[in-house]
């Protein structure tokens, strides 16, 4: 958010601000509107009233990668599509998280073939893997809660945009 970078001089404030920021982030994880195969239907089902992903603050599926925090690789990732998936991931602004949903996105699944990438982690870093073929919406929600858990326990120096020396107290004041 940038605010915490301005306030790093005060350790007590940083600790509690960290918690506040993480709490806010973990309850507003906006996923990218992005599906590849049959897993996408289960992902869509998890947004509907029966399973209601908005209980976790993630109902706002963004049509633009620049507005989303989470990309769910929902389905078989073919080599031809992998170029576009990588581009979408690169367009997302930090902080960003990745869920590999289902057997195909996790390891290639049954498609041990020339056309399929053997796991989304070959092209982008994956935070949570959801097993299943396809996983039920409950499993999608469980995966989302794992992401929330990860965000809530994250420290400032574990961020991807962290640079060494960012948290040091300036001397000479």
């Amino acid at each position: 958010m940038g605010l915490e970078n301005q306030l790093v001089g005060d350790n007590v404030l940083v600790t509690s601000l960290n918690k506040l920021v993480n709490w806010g982030r973990s309850n507003s994880v906006w996923p990218c509107t992005f599906g590849l195969a049959c897993c996408a239907l289960e992902m869509i089902a998890s947004t509907l009233a029966d399973f209601d992903i908005s209980r976790f603050g993630s109902e706002v599926f963004r049509p633009s990668p620049r507005q989303s925090d989470l990309i769910i690789i929902a389905g078989t990732l073919t080599k031809k599509m992998s170029v576009m998936v990588k581009r979408i991931y690169d367009q997302m602004a930090d902080p960003k998280w990745v869920i590999a949903m289902g057997a195909c996105a996790s390891c290639g699944g049954v498609f041990k073939s020339y056309a399929v990438v053997q796991g989304a982690d070959q092209i982008i870093p994956v935070d949570v893997y959801i097993p299943g073929c396809p996983p039920r919406p409950e499993a999608v929600l469980a995966g989302l809660m794992k992401i929330q858990e990860k965000i809530r326990t994250e420290r400032l120096d574990q961020r991807r945009d962290f640079k060494p020396g960012m948290l040091e107290i300036p001397t000479g004041n």
């Binding site: 031809k80 041990k112 073939s113 020339y114 053997q118």
Partner: peptide, 17 residues
């Protein structure tokens, strides 16, 4: 044609596409 294609056991890179 072999089902697994070329370089199946090597890490995949999108730059090759």
């Amino acid at each position: 044609f072999p089902l697994e294609g070329k370089d199946f056991d090597k890490p995949f890179d999108t730059e090759t596409i």
